[in-house]
Design a protein around this nucleic acid. Structure first.
Length: 807
RNA sequence: GCCCGGGUGGCGAAAUUGGCAAACGCGGGGCACUUAAAAUGCCCUGUCCCGAAAGGGACCUGCGGGUUCGAACCCCGCCCUGGGCACCA
């Protein structure tokens, strides 16, 4: 009787071994071909939960698999360690965020090691490491120098709950804060921005070359929101002030003849200037009201339209018709998109239609709707010939657009124009636990960068965390008061810190060169490893993190910090499914987290990893339910079967056939690994194990099983391999290759159908000819019975798979 | 409203892309081992019908059409569901 499989002892032993022997440490001069595998570095929230297990199981599997394929695999890990929870905990308990964070990192580190994930821990990078902060600040200053970081007074999203400014991306569609759920208000503040909009087109174009899920690429495309159209000016009737010109953007210049009014955003600088005396009071009141209205109300399309607009009394002249049209203000026109002013064509735009109805404005159709279109139905946005449009009449939409733009440009009234929905990235945060923005404000010299020799700017430790919601940095005199780097006079430090998405926008570059004291990373190191060959993370980062990191890669190249040709950070992206429980996402805030420790202490890490691989396609969500524990048990049961098989193999009845089956397994499982079909790979391994139990095992068959399992369940594979091979490491073995000669088959099952229904199965040689296949099919007794003497009208022969006889 | 996914046994799923639907596992049933239980091993397990049985037959991939010798897979129209965007002119 062999020793029983003791998962805990084996897993502990091998985790120590990998750590002590530095099995997955890789140097920058490693002779093997490089491969960079990266899981999104986690926010350290404490011990790992199932989402982590799932994520890091896939990552670790690829690291080990690629290593067995002969690559020198870079597999780094670190922690996204700045952020609100640590600061909120500090306010609550008085514990310094650093202490709090370091403790959470220790917990998460322990559980990552507990699932057997292998990393080059020497390369660990945390966002709050002073050395990392130094270079985050260096990058900020370089961007500023290049004009990619700028300061602007802007209406910002202010969350009254978090007492901080939010990026557009952090405001939900309903106008609430994604973190606290409070209704977001508007507030004017001087803020720092990154000029991501400079890269809108490149960010859009380069998506095409990425091996990313289509879903993610689509989301990014929508977020960038490119629209093509024209921009043109209209003069105000009766005004000779050259400033009084309304510039509008439209994607439908072909419909210009149908403009029956124009609309400005309430914040539009011309709004009050063009307003007539008798409308002044009403317009002023409207503007004030719009300013007070929260985005949630303003964005709601529910509100009564007649309260959402006001007539200015002014008329703009439509350059296409030379006719005056009334100018309105309406809160559905946004100052932050396009020119903040639109031409309204109710015939071809539903919002304009609704507004026209509410304000009793004329409607002129400029595209012929289809015959079945209700006469006074609604706006028609489809294709069709232009009508009521003089020299555009009869042209289809695309032609009419082109001609309208040509005319605008020829007449010097307007230009072809592309607009993007993407806005600049607001990175200032009124928070303590983040990377300080290295700027000093001098009464004489304005915003002055902190000299590089004085970096990193670190927050002082002797601060008081108060629930006022304002950063303690603001009240720390010693930090705030400083001297101007230019004149030496008294000056104040910037007390805002950077959005934590800044930290996560370049950590993957630092991993290539984590000990560099002189610069964020060396070009050689980055050239060697970048771009990341396989990036793995959650779908929730589809827009923000992935867009910001892409922007950083491009911008870093353009300011000379990274090789310029390296435009994209992540060649391949995989987004794994979420863990759900009762239909909702597992999360700390919902309190439905399942801790892996319970399984690590019973069935073991290998069984838990195997479960995550086996439960379904990696990209699909996993529903954690009543049956899950039993499935994990089943995975543990399989590993026990493998263990027993290796220690007490039943003698093979036909060793050659078993070895042939092993070669087929190699081919099948290798293919499954390549196409991320781990659930079917596990199924194949289970099937093979069942076969060995039934028909006996050969040493080659058992070794094959262990090699193919090694990336999935590394501990048991390593242990059994060591026992069988005199202390050798399974993960140092080359990935097995199937011998084509052993894959050849003498016979294959051919199905015979009559009228598309299976009537017989015949064993035939794989090289069978169509004629022979047909002959055999017709000779089948079962087929004869079905035919009942009739002759098939048609025979479809697809040797050696199928013959279909059609009556 | 617009844009993406997805819908297959009691359950998780498979079918490598138009050719044997349900591999593998969970659950359920049975047998063996055992004084017994657990553990382990083996067998059965989509639905309905005929048959005492061995067997045999029909129907099955959300619904309705279509293309095809042949459809889970392709096309059209619905229904349900998950996600993203949502006054972006």
């Amino acid at each position: 009787m062999a020793e029983p499989y003791d998962a805990q002892a084996i897993e502990k032993k091998w985790q120590q071994r990998w750590q002590e022997e530095g099995t997955y440490e890789v140097d920058n001069d490693d002779p093997r071909p490089p491969f960079y595998v990266l899981c999104m570095y986690p926010y350290p929230s404490g011990p790992a939960h199932m989402g982590h297990v799932r994520n890091y199981t896939f990552g670790d599997l690829i690291v080990r698999h690629k290593t067995m394929h002969g690559h020198g695999v870079l597999s780094p890990i670190g922690f996204d360690s700045f952020g609100l929870p640590a600061e909120n905990a500090a306010i609550k308990t008085g514990v310094h965020p650093r202490k709090f964070t370091d403790e959470r990192i220790a917990e998460l580190t322990k559980s990552l090691k507990g699932i057997g994930a292998a990393y080059d821990w020497r390369r660990q990078v945390n966002s709050h490491d002073p050395e990392y902060m130094r270079f985050t600040q260096t990058i900020f200053l370089k961007f500023r120098e290049a004009g990619l970081a700028y300061r602007a007074n802007a209406p910002v999203n202010w969350c009254p709950g978090c007492h901080t400014v939010l990026a557009n991306e952090q405001v939900l569609a309903n106008g609430t804060c994604e973190r606290s759920g409070d209704v977001v208000q508007k507030k004017d503040l001087e803020q720092w921005f990154f000029k991501i909009t400079d890269y809108a087109q490149e960010l859009l174009d380069d998506l095409d070359q990425l091996d990313w899920p289509d879903r993610v690429k689509t989301m990014q495309r929508n977020w960038i929101g490119r629209s093509e159209g024209a921009e043109f000016e209209m003069r105000i009737q009766g005004s000779d002030d050259p400033e009084h010109k309304i510039k509008v953007f439209t994607t439908r210049p072909d419909t210009s003849f149908g403009m029956t009014y124009a609309v400005l955003a309430p914040e539009h600088p011309l709004a009050l200037q063009i307003t007539t005396k008798d409308q002044y009071v009403e317009v002023e009141r409207f503007i004030a009201q719009a300013r007070l209205t929260s985005d949630i109300d303003r964005m709601s399309s529910e509100g009564a339209l007649d309260k959402r607009g006001v007539f200015t009394g002014a008329y703009a002249v439509n350059p296409f018709t030379d006719e005056p049209v009334p100018v309105y203000l309406a809160d559905y026109v946004l100052m932050t998109y396009g020119t903040g002013a639109i031409m309204a064509v109710p015939g071809q735009d539903q919002r304009d239609w609704d507004f026209a109805k509410a304000y009793d404005l004329p409607i002129v159709r400029t595209v012929q709707p289809p015959p079945d279109w209700p006469a006074d139905g609604e706006a028609y946005t489809g294709d069709g010939p232009a009508i009521n449009s003089r020299w555009l009449d009869g042209l289809e939409v695309a032609e009419a657009k082109a001609k309208a733009i040509e005319w605008l440009e020829a007449e010097a009234i307007g230009v072809r124009k592309v607009n993007y929905r993407l806005r600049d990235w607001l990175l200032s945060r009124q928070r303590f636990w983040g990377c300080p923005i290295p700027i000093v404000y001098c009464p004489t010299h304005g915003a002055v960068p902190v000299p590089e020799s004085q970096l990193p700017v670190l927050a002082p430790d002797d601060v008081e965390f108060r629930p006022t919601g304002e950063s303690p940095l603001k009240f720390h005199e010693g930090f705030r008061n400083t001297t101007c780097p230019i004149c030496g006079g008294p000056a104040e430090r910037e007390t805002d810190t950077m959005d934590t998405f800044v930290d996560s926008s370049w950590y993957f570059l630092r991993f290539c060169d984590p000990d560099n004291k002189l610069e964020p990373f060396g070009h050689d190191a980055v050239e060697r490893w970048m771009p990341v060959d396989q990036y793995i993370g959650g779908i929730e980062h589809a827009i923000l993190h992935l867009m910001y990191a892409r922007f950083f890669m491009k911008a870093l190249g353009d300011v000379g910090l990274a090789p310029k040709h390296l435009r994209e950070p992540f060649k391949r992206l995989f987004t794994q499914g979420m863990i759900r429980m009762g239909g909702t996402k597992m999360s700390k805030s919902k309190g439905n987290l399942v801790a892996p420790s319970k399984y690590l202490d019973t069935t073991g890490a290998d069984a838990l990893r195997l479960f995550h691989l086996f439960v379904g396609p990696p990209a699909d969500d996993v529903d954690w339910n009543d049956q899950t524990d039993e499935v994990i048990e089943g995975c543990a049961r399989f590993l026990k079967r493998v263990w027993r098989l290796a220690h007490e193999p039943p003698p093979a009845q036909d060793a050659y056939e078993i070895d042939r089956a092993a070669h087929r397994l190699i081919a099948r499982v290798s293919d499954d690994y390549e196409r991320w079909s781990y659930n079917t790979a596990v199924a194949a391994l289970m099937e093979f194990t069942n076969l060995l139990y039934k028909e006996g095992a050969t040493p080659f068959a058992v070794d094959t099983l262990l090699l193919l399992l090694a990336p999935m369940t590394p501990h048991i594979a390593a242990e059994v391999w060591e026992q069988r091979h005199d202390g050798a490491h399974v993960h140092a073995q080359p990935w097995p290759v199937a011998d084509p000669a052993m894959l050849k088959v003498e016979s294959t099952t051919m199905i015979v159908q009559v009228n598309g229904k299976v009537r017989d199965r015949l064993e035939v040689p794989p090289t069978i000819s169509a004629d022979e296949a047909e002959r055999l099919a017709l000779a089948s007794a079962k087929v004869q019975e079905q035919l009942a003497g009739a002759t098939p009208k048609k025979v479809i022969a697809r040797p050696p798979k199928l013959v279909n006889l059609v009556l």
